[in-house]
Design a protein around this nucleic acid. Structure first.
Lengths: 360, 360
DNA sequence: AAAATTAATGAATACGTATTCAAAATAAAA
DNA sequence: TTTTATTTTGAATACGTATTCATTAATTTT
């Protein structure tokens, strides 16, 4: 049947093998259809009521040790687990956190994803992953989250339209922007202190003897890029250091292109601050390819401290964003808001630190 | 209140600012508590029954165009969306796909994640993301998926114990191993044709003049690594080419260490096949650092064709795993099984292709 | 031992939807 | 128009759990 549907052909049209298909298919039909085990079934087997079974699986409910043991044994035997939907229908809350992410291709974010997944799992929460292609999250993505009655939402990489944010407020669903500030002031965000960090960076490069500088921005409309630029430029101005800004897009390719451009224009400066690491690696690639010696001629510093930056081949000086700490803060706020919604807005700024390597 | 809980301090103990906290907090309290809008509310506003509202939101149900319009308008006004839990409780199926992933730090997988997210969103499915640290997925992760009554499960990076697999069969939940074959033969998997690919690779290196070879494996217990080794070694044996095997772990660090080890042991061969790209980049780093010229002295080839391999600085020759096609196949199988469960087992093998760059 | 208190349990109900079945409205045929 | 067929709707019910309230069992106090 699968063969009839052409399922086993791959897109170039060749038919590949389907091991033991027929046999297994027959076996597939033989499988005994065990219906979904419910609390009722467990109750019957354990000789108690459904309520009692429910209580056994509900943290902190009142059950005697003896019946608890009995029920758990029955549950184990039947392979029972509480239906999360029925559960959520009653409690009107879920153990799901919506996580919205855009730039999965920047290694920074998979790392963040991993940390969130680990942290929330420990707390008994699951993650509904939403990928968005747009800088501004679309209405239907949000509707999905709303309809699943998620306990909270974390947006790592994008912003929201005002219209949509109201839905969250109205439904009392806590919302955190991670590594991004929302356009409006009315939400909570967790970021590195970009402003302070970029001031440090500027002073560091100046102290290293750089006399003309370049700032390579990420996507222009992001709060991170703007803040990093602001702090950096402020310090440069104070020291009367000449600088130029290139606008890029937070990708390796973007960094590489910008690097090439600087070489072509013959405008390679002595110090470059790149708004994130992955772009910085692109810049490095372009400069090194053109025989520019780093750090002698030009010093390059990135932002994030992704794993790759530490690789001996790259050895990129950068500003570390303490992912674990940022995640910790986010989770903490989230859990507090889930417990008792306040809708408070604000911004937690976490301090990072300079990681000096061979590009400066 | 948040301040009392110490939420606004970051872990180094400093207190950072919470913008407009008090004001917003007060405002937060003012927010009108709109209760979750239900079909009943919409029905009342639209002047129809709850059943009718339900039908409007249920694909293919019988409603007149006129009432549909009326209901949709009312729904829009109230911001209504069907409660997915109540819905799932009735239908006993969800629009959620469980996606289990281990190696998020290997760029190959974020890319896979993105493709899955995109493909399933188009089909109206959401993704429950499960991160696992272990090669073999743990019971409680699986219970989560089971309890959420996911429509299907994709496991990208790990395997399952036999005990657990039975739960899926029993609940008729389709399961696909992506880029990994299950230990037992009873499941469905989608992979690149690793065996054929590695034969090609062996022949390619031989033809390029390599006379002694090294294979650097990933985690030993993975099917991918074993298959890649098998094909590679078979061809080498046929041509009486000397080879040696190093066991590594699919990480950059692992590759780097292995590269260093080869240099130290003075056993750098003329051709190296590394079981994935990220390790290959580690190997490259180590070799280049030790002044070994590539591709003149040694040729290196990876597997995956992750974005980074194409970066000019790396320019790694590799075997491309056609992610989009693999995802497509997986989704196709999944949807067919969701529509009508067969439990058929088998293996779709997708052809990749050699991408020749500067390391060979 | 009796009374009073506390702990443990079960019966009944609500959550928000899909779905069945019967009734009503509409369209088509006579 | 009347009859028949068809489309559209509403009332009632089920899904699997948490929870309330009343009841029973166990424990403590008198």
């Amino acid at each position: 049947m699968l063969l009839e549907q052409g399922l086993i052909t791959c897109s170039i049209g060749t038919i590949y093998y389907l091991r033991d298909a027929a046999i297994i298919f027959e076996r597939g039909c033989e499988v005994i259809v065990r219906k979904g085990v419910t609390a009722k079934d467990v109750a019957k087997l354990a000789g108690v009521s459904q309520s009692t079974v429910s209580r056994v699986f509900f943290e902190g409910a009142m059950v005697s040790e003896r019946t608890k043991k009995k029920v758990l044994a029955a549950a184990e035997e039947l392979g029972y687990g509480p239906n999360e939907f029925a559960r959520s229908l009653i409690t009107n809350r879920t153990k799901i956190i919506g996580l919205v992410m855009k730039g999965v291709k920047n290694p920074f974010y998979p790392h963040v994803l991993k940390e969130f997944a680990t942290a929330f799992k420990r707390l008994g929460y699951s993650i509904l992953f939403v990928h968005t292609n747009n800088d501004e999250i679309q209405k239907d993505d949000i509707m999905t989250l709303l309809n699943y009655k998620v306990a909270g939402v974390i947006i790592t990489d994008a912003t929201l339209s005002l219209k949509v944010t109201e839905d969250f407020k109205a439904n009392k669903i806590p919302l955190v922007f991670f590594n991004r500030k929302a356009g409006m002031k009315d939400f909570f965000s967790v970021c590195t202190n970009n402003y302070e960090a970029s001031r440090h960076i500027a002073e560091f490069l100046i102290q290293k003897g750089c006399e003309d500088m370049v700032y390579i921005s990420g996507n222009h409309d992001t709060s991170t890029s703007r803040e990093r630029e602001m702090g950096f430029v402020e310090v440069l101005k104070k020291h009367h250091v000449h600088y130029k800004k290139y606008t890029s897009d937070y990708t390796f390719a973007g960094g590489y292109t910008t690097g090439q451009q600087m070489v072509t224009e013959n405008k390679v400066p002595s110090g470059i601050f790149v708004a994130n690491d992955i772009m910085a690696l692109g810049v490095l690639g372009a400069l090194r390819e053109n025989g520019i010696s780093i750090p002698e001629t030009t010093k390059v510093i990135g932002f994030d401290n992704i794993d790759m930056s530490a690789w001996p081949t790259n050895s990129l000086t950068t500003w570390e964003q303490p992912i674990v700490e940022m995640v910790e803060q986010t989770v903490r706020y989230m859990m507090a808001e889930i417990k008792e919604y306040s809708g408070v807005s604000g911004n937690i700024e976490v301090q990072g630190r300079l990681v000096e390597r061979k590009t400066t």
